[in-house]
């Protein structure tokens, strides 16, 4: 059994979001092959944990995927593929999977499952079955994402995320050239410098995801 945390988007109460995290995963290549084959039992978004900053960094694309999927405007087949696609700053679907989805050598992964697409009253069953299924198929150490998802960014590689969302500023009108967002390192208001950096980065990343391809 894998540790699964359940989250609710305030505006989508009937679509619970299950998140599990794993370290030292041995069979990423197998998991990826199941996705590529379209195995219906592998209806998840498998993300490379090094690319995920925080819980909100998963919840926004999940929200957008739900919103587009339920209104017939999604660009990909499933709500889970749409989630991975929505993480990416531009409109290249293949690239979004290459960058945010798991690769054959991924060691730390985040599995996301959006529930609610089954009949009413099946939620609890779903949570348990997600936990059992992931526990069976993922060969790795299940870790706890935290009750509020506070540990979700632990495996994040900030430099990588910064690069993917092009967070080096300097393109615009005469600002401080080459300044990096979320790299001040100052501790403010008792909040650790790194925590503040991450918060600031998250706020820009959410904006970039929102503006995706436009």
């Amino acid at each position: 059994m894998a540790t699964v945390r359940k989250f609710h988007l305030p505006h989508y109460p009937s679509y619970p979001i299950y998140i599990s995290t794993f370290k030292n995963v041995e069979n990423a290549a197998f998991l990826r092959s199941q996705l590529l084959e379209g195995n219906p039992n592998f209806d998840y978004a498998f993300l490379d944990a090094s690319t995920i900053l925080s819980l909100n960094h998963i919840l926004l694309p999940a929200f957008l995927a739900l919103s587009l999927h339920t209104s017939g405007r999604a660009k990909t087949k499933t709500v889970h593929s749409e989630l991975v696609f929505r993480l990416h700053p531009n409109n290249n679907i293949a690239e979004s999977f290459k960058k945010f989805g798991i690769g054959d050598s991924s060691r730390n992964i985040i599995a996301v499952k959006i529930g609610g697409f089954m009949k009413e009253g099946q939620d609890e069953v779903a949570e348990e079955s997600v936990s059992r299924h992931l526990g069976e198929v993922v060969q790795g150490d299940s870790t706890d994402p935290g009750e509020r998802g506070e540990r979700l960014g632990e495996e994040c590689e900030m430099e990588k995320v910064r690069k993917m969302y092009k967070l080096e500023s300097g393109a615009g009108g005469g600002g401080k050239k080459g300044k990096k967002i979320g790299n001040t390192g100052e501790a403010v208001n008792g909040m650790g410098g790194e925590e503040k950096d991450r918060k600031e980065m998250e706020s820009v990343v959410l904006g970039v995801i929102t503006l995706k391809g436009s």
């Binding site: 500023s169 401080k176 300044k179 820009v204 959410l206 904006g207 929102t210 503006l211």
Partner: peptide, 13 residues
Amino acid sequence: RREGVSVPAVLGA
């Protein structure tokens, strides 16, 4: 937000 000017962050749209 990218350039460090203090405005509300965009959370979604």
